[in-house]
């Protein structure tokens, strides 16, 4: 299989944030979901029902498949959150953790 490399057709201003401890380069105006896609990251969370992995699906805020934890807040739609310098994003594993 030829992997479907995601890439950008232009460069704007680069900012960086963190996903699962790794530095990810994004561009100003990207949603978190878009930036992760450009970085080749497709697996964003586990389903809370079966634990199956899920990634982006609709990119317009309708499907809630791209839920991630952003700066400690669970259940954020990655496609609806704009990237900011220094964001800390984590995969959402099953049922979002409560802050105990």
């Amino acid at each position: 299989m030829v992997p479907s490399r995601a890439r950008r057709i232009e460069e704007v201003r680069t900012i960086s944030f963190e996903f699962e401890g790794l530095a990810v380069q994004a561009q100003e105006g990207d949603s978190v979901a878009a930036a992760l896609t450009a970085a080749g990251i497709v697996d964003l969370r586990d389903s809370p029902v079966s634990g199956a992995p899920r990634g982006i699906y609709c990119m317009m805020g309708a499907c809630f498949d791209c839920l991630v934890e952003i700066d400690g807040q669970p259940n954020r739609q990655a496609c609806m959150c704009e990237v900011r310098e220094g964001l800390v994003v984590r995969r959402q594993q099953g049922r979002a953790e409560l802050e105990l």
């Binding site: 809370p48 049922r95 979002a96 953790e97 409560l98 105990l100």
Partner: peptide, 13 residues
């Protein structure tokens, strides 16, 4: 009309 709300799935507590 008694009202209820339901949350997302969270770890068992």
């Amino acid at each position: 009309a008694p009202m209820m709300l339901v949350t997302n799935r969270v770890p068992h507590f």
